[in-house]
Design a protein around this nucleic acid. Structure first.
Lengths: 153, 153
DNA sequence: CGCGCACTGTTGACCTGTCAACCGCACGGA
DNA sequence: TCCGTGCGGTTGACAGGTCAACAGTGCGCG
């Protein structure tokens, strides 16, 4: 860690990996958002929650929250807007008065069916450009960095 | 790339790379923010802008904005709070009445000196955990994905 | 010269994501 | 049974990032 040499020009590469990540993540989000707006008229958040509900159908918000890592408040708001759009239903659970049972409506399914192919094509395209091999590697590194992010400084 | 199998359970891995990125990026940011608060009492945004100013000393906001990829509005606000903290100065440019010339004050330098070692230790730690080899690979993949993020769908 | 155009920087509006406070309910132990 | 603790969900507050509108200035071209 040569504190003498002018680190100035190394900053971008050395201390800003996270910054690059942020940019990339944002670019990908923008791309996805456009896709979603064009093909399904839903926001990225709505889409993610919609998918999460679809995966664990008849689940409740806490399930979604835990499984997807979303903030429960965010899920609550997302579900609200999704129900307003008629894409999911949210009814009180018979067995637990606190819980809401979530269900994707036919309209919701329709949007998923309409959007999913494009979404898959997109990720396929990314995988193709990057290469399956590198993709696995990337995944592994992500895991390592996730762990590294937990260390205290 | 089996498009047949019930995709439902593959979502997390297949369509949510970006989501994972978001999580990782956020975890890293949280880590960095804590570090910054502890050792220099600056926010992550302030830190990034401070560094950017330090790199291109005597530059103007537009330089920072272009070079770092920050929104110019964000830079403007960041500079404002940094000047309020006395870490940078922002004076009108003699040669261009539109521009502000930015300069890191001794206090700003002091904070950089205080924080930078920890910051470097952190990235070094990450690099160590991940491995230099994988890090390079990771970098390459990032570039590829940045390109992939530009494609329209 | 004078005009349009591009650029600098400021500000306001908006969206996302996070955190915390809160209410109602479930559940287990005293 | 009753009470404490903890969970499910809602809501408000806040920070960060993006976009757009704007005023002021520089610059080049007719």
């Amino acid at each position: 860690m040569n504190m003498e040499t002018p680190e100035t020009l190394n900053f971008d590469q050395r201390t800003f990996i996270t910054f690059r990540l942020a940019k990339l993540q944002n670019a990908l989000n923008t791309q996805a958002s456009k896709l979603l707006k064009r093909h399904g008229n839903v926001t990225l958040t709505e889409w993610r929650i919609l998918i999460a509900i679809s995966v664990s159908d008849m689940g409740q918000m806490a399930d979604i929250s835990r499984h997807s890592g979303f903030d429960k408040g965010q899920v609550s708001r997302g579900v609200k807007s999704l129900t307003k759009k008629g894409l999911v239903t949210s009814v009180a659970d018979d067995e637990d008065a606190r819980a809401q049972v979530l269900h994707v409506t036919p309209d919701g399914k329709a949007i998923i069916d309409a959007v999913l192919p494009h979404m898959l094509a997109r990720t396929a395209r990314i995988e193709r450009d990057v290469g399956a091999e590198s993709m696995k590697h990337f995944d592994r590194v992500l895991t390592l960095m996730e762990d590294a992010a937990k260390v205290e400084f």
